Amino acid sequence: VLKALERTRQLDIPDEKTMPVLMKLLEEAGGNWSYIKLDNYTALVDAIYSVED
């Protein structure tokens, strides 16, 4: 979780936006981090930006 938060902080995305999206992605992935961690957490960042749209 810390590495995911560090990555999104680099992009000026607050933890308050990151955590709900991260928890949803983890739930959808059955707790499997490998998809979320791919390409420096690209799936997480993309999911956060899609929620903002």
Rank of each mutant, 00 (worst) to 15 (best):
T18C: 06
V21T: 06
Y49D: 06
K24S: 07
L38H: 13
D46E: 14
A43L: 14
K17A: 09
L5F: 05
Y49R: 14
L38T: 09
T8I: 07
E27Y: 11
M23T: 07
V21W: 05
G31P: 03
W33Y: 03
L38M: 14
I13A: 02
G31R: 04
S34G: 12
L25R: 01
D12E: 12
E6S: 07
I48R: 01
S34M: 12
Q10N: 08
V21C: 06
K17F: 08
D53E: 14
L26C: 05
N40S: 07
V1H: 07
S34Q: 13
K17V: 15
K3M: 11
Y41K: 00
D15Y: 06
I36D: 01
N32F: 06
L22C: 01
L5C: 07
V21D: 00
I36C: 02
M19P: 01
Q10G: 10
V1E: 06
T42L: 13
L5V: 03
E28W: 09
G31V: 05
T42H: 15
R7P: 03
Q10I: 08
Y35F: 11
L2W: 08
M23I: 10
A4Y: 05
D12P: 03
D53L: 13
T8K: 02
K3Y: 07
D12W: 08
E6Y: 09
T42D: 08
E28K: 11
R9G: 04
G30S: 09
K3R: 11
L26M: 05
G30F: 09
G30C: 11
R9F: 04
K37M: 15
L26S: 00
N40M: 06
W33V: 00
Q10H: 08
N40H: 07
V51D: 11
M23H: 07
L44E: 03
D53K: 13
A47R: 09
D46A: 14
E16R: 08
A47T: 06
E28D: 11
W33S: 00
Y35V: 13
L2C: 15
V51W: 14
E6T: 09
L22E: 00
V45L: 13
D12R: 14
L26R: 00
K3D: 15
N40D: 10
L38C: 07
L11S: 04
V21N: 02
K3E: 15
G30H: 12
N32A: 08
E6G: 05
T8D: 01
N32L: 07
E52A: 13
Y49K: 12
T18N: 01
E28M: 13
